[in-house]
Amino acid sequence: MSSDLILRVGTKLILPFILLFAIYVQLHGDYGPGGGFQAGVIVAAVVILIAITFGHNAAKRVAPRGLVECMVPMGVLIFAGTGVAGFFLGGNYLDYSVLSHDPIHGHHLGIFLVEIGVAVTVSGTMVALFYAFVERGR
């Protein structure tokens, strides 16, 4: 699509670092600014950057449309499933204390799972929105 050398090489150089930053924001959300929303949007930004620089088909190889569309409800299911897990382990809905033998560990685990769910839905939705707009223009 684009034949701009600087853009292509620059994008290739910067992509792993953006992805690494997304993972950092996701996993370090307990201790610093960040969390599922921000990481999800940054992951989506990686796919959008690939689509802008290397074309729509390259982006679809990285994030196939079917996978992206599955991710949209998947995150909500992970989130709701975490709540249901607390239900079955003897607590209330979305009560994290019962998820592990130690309540503090349970809270850590619960927050971790919930943030994963949020990140999956947000990244899936953002990429799906982008694909929907781009494919309309074809």
């Binding site: 959300g29 201790y31 979305l94 994290y96 503090i104 809270h107 619960g110 927050i111 919930v114 949020v118």
Partner: peptide, 18 residues
């Protein structure tokens, strides 16, 4: 209660997870 230093994350994903 949660062991999470970032209060915003704790409130977002724990206290107000609904």
């Amino acid at each position: 209660e949660t062991g999470v230093p970032n209060i915003v994350t704790a409130v977002l994903a724990d206290y107000r997870s609904f």
